[in-house]
């Protein structure tokens, strides 16, 4: 019984993710594409829930849907593309090729790692206590964790720097 429900829910999440991704890529309207992206992120959050990690799911919602998407949309909102403007013209083939390359890049970079160091699948998902997660991040993976913070810090400083330049001009 539970198995069937789980499979159904998994299928639903998959549909949401794929449908959202399709909408995001193929929609001519930027905002609709954006809605598709939000749907994809929501679906991913659902998958995390299914994998017994509500913490990650909520973080996905809080950070990706609640903050990053909102900021992306904020930028989108200020660009008001007309229905018959230049933007609606079909893009040249070279653009398609480059986009495809960019899309495939993570796959190419991540696939070897996943294939070389496969993680054994579990019969049933197990919840990881929050404390353990914190320990792993801050004890085992301290250096990558701090490196990521440094990257974020640099990005933030860069943003402030750019905005500063603008204002002074």
């Amino acid at each position: 019984m539970m198995e069937i429900i789980t499979r159904l829910v998994f299928g639903l999440y998959l549909l949401v993710i794929l449908g959202g991704a399709g909408l995001a890529v193929f929609s001519a309207n930027l905002v609709r594409a954006f809605v598709g992206m939000v749907a994809t992120l929501l679906g991913a959050a659902g998958l995390y829930l299914l994998m017994q990690s509500p913490f990650l799911a909520f973080m996905q919602l809080l950070i990706y849907v609640g903050a990053i998407c909102v900021l992306i949309f904020f930028a989108l909102m200020l660009t008001n593309a007309y229905q018959g403007g230049d933007e609606s013209a079909p893009a040249p083939l070279s653009k398609f090729a480059r986009s495809l390359l960019a899309g495939l890049a993570p796959l190419v970079l991540l696939l070897p790692t996943v294939l070389l160091h496969p993680v054994a699948a579990k019969e049933k998902p197990e919840a990881t206590p929050l404390a353990e997660l914190g320990k792993v991040l801050l004890e085992e993976y301290t250096v990558p964790f701090e490196l990521i913070s440094i990257i974020l810090l640099i990005a933030m400083a860069g943003g402030v720097f750019l905005a500063w330049e603008r204002r002074n001009r």
């Binding site: 909520f58 973080m59 849907v65 949309f73 904020f74």
Partner: peptide, 24 residues
């Protein structure tokens, strides 16, 4: 749930998105 507070904070962000979409 053990993450009740987080759940509230996470889902309250969706409201912002709705405001944005409505406005646009």
């Amino acid at each position: 749930p053990n993450l009740g507070l987080l759940l509230i904070l996470a889902f309250s962000g969706i409201n912002v998105l709705a405001v944005l979409l409505a406005g646009w």
